[in-house]
């Protein structure tokens, strides 16, 4: 009797295994883990900069001379750049993945979208004489087990690292380890462990961790950063007109809006 139930148990296990294989096999064939989808940053699970920051003298003086209103490129509708787009911890992220590339699309609030292209096809970096710094850098990636290892170089030095003006020398090398994990509170999460190496900025490599939670129903708004500047400019013009009219003693009437956004032809 005892022997029989063990046999049934084994047979049951075999059946279960067969079913499980049949169901999971199509997934198992896709060798690389799936990072794709829409993700939202989780500040609670992310790390902060080390305190104190291991800065070189040069980096210290760059930081001391920073005035956000004047020196933050994002205030002028320039990109956040890499790795600030990844580190910012506020931008929704969409990951698009194929066999040979992974694109990280960030949508920072009120700024234009930023796309980091990571090639996994083994293509080399451009030759030294053709390499130019870009705001998003040149990235190459490879799978290390279930972790996507991304190396990024050629990052434009004007792309500061955070809103407080921490900057790099242009020789920044970024190493990232992206993987999907499960968090008890947030469920499916995407974790990025970043290591920033730049001997002219940091006296030792600095590590950071950013965590994103899976958010398949999130819709990406369309960021048009310049529109803000354009509207500011229109307002400045309008205020100027009013001021001039007031000085001349002829208060202007605000012209009626022509057309509207809901009807057909204006």
């Amino acid at each position: 009797m005892h022997e029989r139930s063990r046999r049934v148990g084994r047979a049951g296990l075999r059946t279960i295994t067969t079913w499980a294989m049949a169901l999971l096999c199509p997934l198992a064939v896709a060798a690389a883990p799936d990072l794709s989808g829409r993700w939202l940053p989780v500040p609670e699970l992310s790390s902060d900069w080390p305190d104190p920051l291991p800065l070189t003298e040069a980096a210290r003086s760059r930081l001391a001379g920073f005035f956000a209103d004047r020196d933050d490129p994002a205030g002028f509708c320039m990109p956040l750049g890499t790795p600030r787009n990844t580190l910012s911890g506020t931008s929704p992220l969409e990951v698009l993945q194929t066999d040979d590339r992974v694109y990280f699309v960030f949508q920072p609030d009120l700024l234009n979208a930023e796309t980091r292209r990571v090639y996994l096809d083994g293509r080399p970096l451009p030759p030294a004489e053709k390499r130019l710094p870009t705001w998003f850098g040149s990235s190459r990636g490879r799978w290390d087990g279930s972790t996507l290892v991304v190396d990024t170089v050629d990052i434009e030095p004007q792309a500061i690292l955070d809103g407080n003006g921490l900057s790099h020398s242009g020789k920044l090398e970024l190493r990232e380890r992206w993987r999907v994990a499960r968090d008890r509170k947030y469920g499916r999460v995407l974790i990025d462990e970043l290591t920033l190496t730049d001997p002219e900025t940091f006296t030792r490599p600095v590590t950071q961790r950013r965590v994103f939670t899976w958010a398949p129903t999130v819709q990406f708004a369309e960021g048009q950063c310049s529109e803000r500047l354009w509207i500011d400019s229109l307002w400045r013009q309008r205020l100027q007109e009013h001021a001039e009219a007031a000085r001349a003693g002829h208060p202007r009437e605000t012209p009626d809006r022509v057309g509207n956004e809901t009807g057909a032809a204006p």
Partner: peptide, 10 residues
């Protein structure tokens, strides 16, 4: 490539 339309004001 990267298109930095706002490079001018920056």
């Amino acid at each position: 490539g990267e298109y930095l339309c706002q490079q001018d004001i920056w």
